[in-house]
Simulated scan of single mutants.
Amino acid sequence: MEGNKKKISAEFPFESKFLEVNGSKMHYIDEGEGDTILFLHGNPTSSYLWRNIIPYLKPLGRCIAPDLIGMGKSDKPNIGYSYKDHTDYLTKFIDNLDLKNITLVLHDWGSGIGFHYANTHRDNIKAIAFMEAMVKPIEPSPEMQTAFKMMRTKGIGWLMISVGNMFINKMLPSMINRTLTEEEFNYYKAPYPTVGSRKALREFPRNVPIGEEPKFSYDRIKAYGEWLTETDLPKLLLYVTPGALIRDVDVKFIKENFSNLKAVDVGEGLHFIQEDNPHQIGEEIAQWYKEL
């Protein structure tokens, strides 16, 4: 596609807005007019992840991309940053802005939060686009289980994530094929200058269900995973090779079990695919959205 040749910009040319939720400010951008297109990032990114994709959707709807509580330019209150906390903040964010007829664009933990919202607010969802997403409870490899066990171990996990800032310094760049520019890397790194500022990053791995624990996460992900196989809501899957959360076996499962689905291969990639191929992703979402 022509989009593959376009420059990937480091600029974030959007006006910052803030909305108070539970006594804390959530940062977001709000571009365009019409039905809501809501972009939800995961760990350890922010609305910055969508900077090269939103321009493709801005002519088609009201593009809103928040920074999850405790992340990006949003406040970092002294809360647990559990899955339950994040779903509560997002639901109130949507209610406070009175967002209606929402098309979700989901990635990573943004999918865990967004799919749950969709399952519990079905009448307010128009369609769902997703990439590198949690469409059902994860079945981790032995290597992944070991990594999560370390991250969840008291002391070790704190040293890895809060002191070493592992998600920003190691995982983010290792899950992108190209090398981030200094400006891009610094934008992602800026919200987390201290050990205390990294609490939200540290808590996300604790909330990934391994087996059936933690139960809150497992039950919600299992419930929306079942709903995704039942609903005729329009869906767009964007996938890469080899991927990380959505690999070949997952693409096969989704194609066989999700109705009203358009699946698009956007080339080579790992996890943060918006940093490798944002223009094709933006073009594909825009084309699909026009046809809804």
Rank of each mutant, 00 (worst) to 15 (best):
E143C: 00
G157M: 08
S197A: 13
I156C: 01
E139Y: 12
L245D: 08
K25N: 14
P278R: 04
Y187H: 14
D265H: 15
L19Q: 12
K290E: 15
S259A: 09
K149N: 15
P191K: 07
S16L: 02
L172Q: 07
V105D: 01
T146Q: 14
G282W: 14
F18N: 05
D30R: 01
P13T: 09
M151E: 07
F272T: 03
S46M: 10
N277G: 06
G157W: 14
S24E: 10
L237I: 05
R122Q: 15
F253Y: 15
P278N: 08
S141Q: 06
I54E: 00
R247G: 00
G164K: 08
D108N: 02
E132H: 06
G269A: 04
I168C: 07
D248A: 14
A200W: 08
F115L: 03
K199E: 12
I128Q: 03
H86M: 07
N169A: 11
Y239E: 07
D219N: 09
N4F: 14
E33S: 13
L19F: 11
G269E: 09
A65S: 12
H121L: 06
N22E: 12
G34Y: 11
D219C: 00
G61R: 04
L245V: 04
S74M: 07
T103D: 03
L270R: 13
D276H: 07
P242H: 12
I138E: 12
P173V: 09
T241L: 09
Y117R: 00
F258N: 00
T181V: 09
S47Q: 11
R51F: 10
N101M: 01
D108I: 00
I138W: 15
N277H: 12
S24F: 13
F115S: 01
M71V: 01
I128N: 03
G72L: 05
Y192P: 06
K126T: 10
V266W: 09
K154I: 06
W227I: 03
I64M: 05
W158S: 11
D85Y: 02
R206V: 02
E226I: 08
N169Q: 15
I125R: 00
E33Q: 15
S259H: 14
G164D: 08
R220L: 05
K7M: 09
E230K: 14
L233A: 03
S259M: 03
I168R: 02
E291V: 01
Y224T: 05
N4W: 14
I29F: 11
Y48V: 07
L97W: 11
I221F: 08
P142L: 11
T120Y: 08
A263L: 03
K154M: 10
M166R: 08
R206L: 08
G157K: 05
L97V: 06
V105G: 06
E33K: 15
N257L: 03
W50V: 02
I29C: 04
